[in-house]
Simulated scan of single mutants.
Amino acid sequence: MLDRVLIAIARNARFIPESLLRGLFACAADICWLFGVGGVRQLERNLRHVLGAAGTDNAGISNAGTGTSQSGDVHQAGGTTVSRRRLRQVSRRGMRAYFAYFSEAMTVGARSEQQLRARVRGDGPGLQGLIAYVHDSTGSAPLALGHQGNWDYAGFWAHHALAPVTAVAERLGNQKLLDTFVHIRESLGMRIVLTGQKGITAQLREQLAKPNVVVALLADRDLSRHGEFVTAFGSTIRVARGPATLALDTGLPLYAVNVFRERLHGDQRRKAKSRYGYVCWFEKPIDIDRYRSLPREEAIRAISQAWVDVWAAQITRHPEDWHMLQPIFLEDLDLSRLSDVPDDILAKIAGNAA
Rank of each mutant, 00 (worst) to 15 (best):
Q175P: 14
W322L: 13
N352E: 09
V37I: 15
D249R: 07
G277K: 04
I16R: 01
E283S: 13
I131D: 06
S304M: 10
A141T: 11
V182H: 12
A53E: 04
A13H: 09
I315N: 04
A158P: 04
R292Q: 12
L194C: 10
G65Y: 04
S187D: 14
I237W: 01
V134E: 03
A100D: 12
Q114F: 01
I345L: 03
P211F: 06
Q115M: 11
Y278G: 04
N174I: 05
A306Y: 01
A132L: 06
A13V: 10
F329S: 03
K176W: 05
A163D: 06
G126F: 09
H323E: 09
T138G: 04
I16F: 04
S91V: 13
R301I: 04
G78I: 08
L188D: 02
V134G: 05
A247G: 12
V82K: 09
R14P: 04
T316W: 00
H75D: 13
R11D: 13
T180F: 10
D267N: 00
A97C: 08
R337T: 15
A299Y: 10
V37S: 10
Y153T: 05
P327E: 10
L178K: 04
L330W: 03
M324W: 00
A53F: 01
L20I: 06
R301Q: 15
D73S: 14
R337G: 05
E44N: 03
C27S: 14
L34F: 13
L218H: 07
F233N: 14
P342Y: 07
L335T: 14
V257P: 06
R84F: 08
M324N: 06
A54W: 07
A202W: 02
A54S: 13
G251K: 08
N58Y: 11
L130P: 11
A77M: 04
V259P: 06
R14M: 07
C32R: 10
H318Q: 08
R241M: 05
L130F: 08
E113L: 10
K176L: 14
D30F: 01
E320I: 12
I16H: 03
G149M: 00
S274F: 02
H323Y: 05
L325F: 14
L47V: 07
S140V: 02
H323P: 10
A240W: 00
G351H: 03
H159K: 07
V279M: 02
G39Q: 02
V239D: 13
L252Y: 00
I61F: 05
D220L: 04
L254Y: 01
I286G: 12
R292C: 12
A118M: 06
W311E: 12
Q314H: 11
R292V: 13
L178V: 05
A347F: 01
Q175W: 01
G173E: 14
I328K: 09
L116K: 08
I345V: 15
R22I: 00
E228T: 15
N174V: 10
T201Q: 10
G52Q: 11
Y276R: 08
Y98H: 15
N12R: 15
